[in-house]
């Protein structure tokens, strides 16, 4: 009784969320989101809880329902949060799930790597490679030269523009 009500509420929320969430997610991984939800090891789902979006397996979700809402702090992996103004921000914790499906990537030189981790934007001088056809303000996943995903960014310039930018220009904004 209580349980189904909870579930309904969550589901309703999730649908509202889906509209929001999927836009920024789509920006970075595109239509691959289906792959996230229907994984070979079972169904997975997104749930909104206290303005944060969590990604978890269905089984885990059902278990988590046994807790009262106020007592629940986090389930599965936190993907991002909604700001008070309704914008969605990705969290770096989503990286390991999103990175394999990312369509647009940039690679950093070793010198830039540490700076990016400490929250700086990516400069042209630190850029090693970038996926072709990246549009301006496209969500990107940032890698280092050893192909380890570092975080999320947004392209400040399209690939074509990058070619002609001067070394100190910002080519990607640090996001998470």
């Amino acid at each position: 009784m209580d349980r189904t009500k909870d579930e309904d509420q969550l589901q309703a929320l999730a649908q509202v969320v889906a509209r929001f969430t999927h836009t920024p997610l789509r920006r970075s991984i595109g239509e691959n989101i289906r792959l996230l939800l229907e994984r070979p090891d079972g169904l997975y789902c997104f749930r909104l809880h206290k303005d944060r979006v969590y990604y978890m397996s269905e089984a885990l979700m059902r278990h988590a329902l046994s807790f009262p809402r106020h007592a629940l702090i986090s389930v599965g992996t936190c993907f991002g949060k909604f700001t008070k103004s309704g914008k969605f921000h990705l969290h770096v914790t989503a990286l390991e799930f999103l990175a394999p499906y990312a369509q647009h990537k940039i690679w950093l030189k070793a010198s830039m790597e540490q700076q990016f981790l400490y929250g700086h934007h990516v400069l042209k001088s630190g850029l090693a490679r970038v996926t072709e056809n990246t549009a301006k303000y496209q969500g990107v996943v940032v890698y280092n030269m050893k192909d380890v995903p570092l975080g999320f960014g947004a392209a400040a310039k399209s690939t074509a523009e990058c070619r002609h930018a001067d070394p100190t220009a910002i080519v990607a904004f640090h996001q998470a």
Partner: peptide, 10 residues
């Protein structure tokens, strides 16, 4: 990177 956890505060 623990993905199977439910964290609660009670």
């Amino acid at each position: 990177g623990v993905t199977n956890a439910v964290i609660s505060c009670t």
